[in-house]
Amino acid sequence: MTEQQRIHPHKFTLWVAMGSIVMMFAGLTSAYIVKKNQSSWLEFELPTVFWYSTFVILLSSVTIHLAGKSFKTREMGRYRNLITITAALGVLFMILQVLGFQNLEARNIALTGAKSNSAASFLLVITGLHMLHVLGGVIAILVIFIRAYAGRVKQYSSMPIELVSTYWHFVDILWIYLFIFYNWIG
């Protein structure tokens, strides 16, 4: 077996971790389905703003992909701009999600508290957990961003950006799954 064929241990660990995260969301969405088939399930329209957030996170996947490409061709200025945009889009995504929650509350669909229905609470818990995973991605971008500036030693390894990029695409796909699930499956 040559060196090139072997996957880097950190990259492999990330893949296993993503499998683990998938299991968590699989558990939650199956609980959602079980609950939906029982009595007193509230049907409501998803906030429209979720469409915008879907667009934003898709766009951020494109920007981080381009960032990785610029890193490999050593266009560092472009690379820094692109990961900054990606992180900003991540933050924008989270803001849009919160706006979505506020939209529900405004329509008198309680997410928590005594008057809440578990349909809305599920939306809050699942979407909220996904937001936390996006937040993790934003923090990871900040870390590699600071490294790109502050490192005394120049970073030539593309491994950090590859790891972050893989994770970022993962949370993107995870949201697409959840979005499809809310709209057409669950």
């Binding site: 968590m24 609980a31 928590t112 508290g113 609470s121 957990l129």
Partner: peptide, 18 residues
């Protein structure tokens, strides 16, 4: 992770009235 999701729902029931 599945146990974890069960715990999260439990925390919401305990603390946030769901």
């Amino acid at each position: 992770p599945v146990l974890f999701s069960g715990f999260i729902l439990l925390i919401f029931d305990r603390n946030f009235g769901t």
